[in-house]
């Protein structure tokens, strides 16, 4: 298993949102997270990315194997498309940015400043960033926002290629990506019922 989560409980702003969550992700797996707004998808992904701590439970993942893509793309508007990708490649200690440019058809845009891109083009650049990190597990938060059908297909192809190479992807999304191999995980049954976030808030009562 590349990523395994057992009996996880997470909270947002001190209020528990998900509990008792367990799942595992192996090489070649695509797991799609479903659930209504506010059910804790983003919080779960941020927890897996290590940006916040779980209330309880275990997350087992090899260090430096995971890359996170949030709602915001992390694109510098004054840098060109190539410069943006090169920057992130350097941060992750990688060299080659060509596969990323090809996978998301960014070659015609390569020398344009990212600030001049449309929302959908920016998103494509944001997703291309995943390819330059060289990380095996993609943790994606609503990756298809503002993408057209053609770009969604590009993205699906990129995910398929990635998992075929032994990668894995965990995707929170509302739309159908056309990935037949993807497993669905509905978060609705894991919504937190417990009222106290931890023993200390309980001890205030």
């Amino acid at each position: 298993m590349m990523l395994s989560v057992s009996d996880l409980m997470i909270s947002r702003g001190g209020i528990p949102v998900l509990e008792g969550l367990s799942f595992a992700l192996g090489a070649g797996d695509v797991l799609v997270l479903r659930g209504p707004n506010g059910c804790g998808k983003t919080t779960l992904l941020r927890t897996l990315a290590g940006l916040q701590l779980p209330v309880s439970g275990r997350i087992d993942v090899a260090s430096e194997s995971l890359v996170y893509a949030a709602h915001a793309d992390g694109i510098k508007t004054t840098l060109t498309v190539t410069e943006n990708l090169r920057f992130w490649a350097q941060v992750f200690g990688q060299e080659n940015i060509m596969p990323a440019i090809e996978a998301f058809h960014l070659a015609p845009l390569a020398d344009r400043p990212a600030g001049a891109l449309s929302a959908g083009q920016k998103r494509r650049l944001g997703l291309a960033r995943l390819l330059v990190t060289g990380r095996a597990i993609w943790v994606l938060d609503e990756p298809t926002v503002s993408l057209d059908a053609e770009a969604v297909a590009m993205f699906a192809t990129a995910v398929r290629t990635h998992v075929a190479d032994g990668g894995a992807a965990l995707i929170a999304t509302h739309i159908d990506l056309g990935l037949r191999e993807a497993r669905l995980l509905d978060l609705e049954p894991y919504r937190a019922r417990a009222l106290a976030t931890d023993d200390f808030d309980g001890s205030f009562l």
């Binding site: 001190g14 209020i15 009222l195 205030f204 009562l205």
Partner: peptide, 17 residues
Amino acid sequence: EIRARRLRVLIARQRME
């Protein structure tokens, strides 16, 4: 401060219910 904190916990719970 403890009571104010307790109040916030209670309000948060109520909102959740």
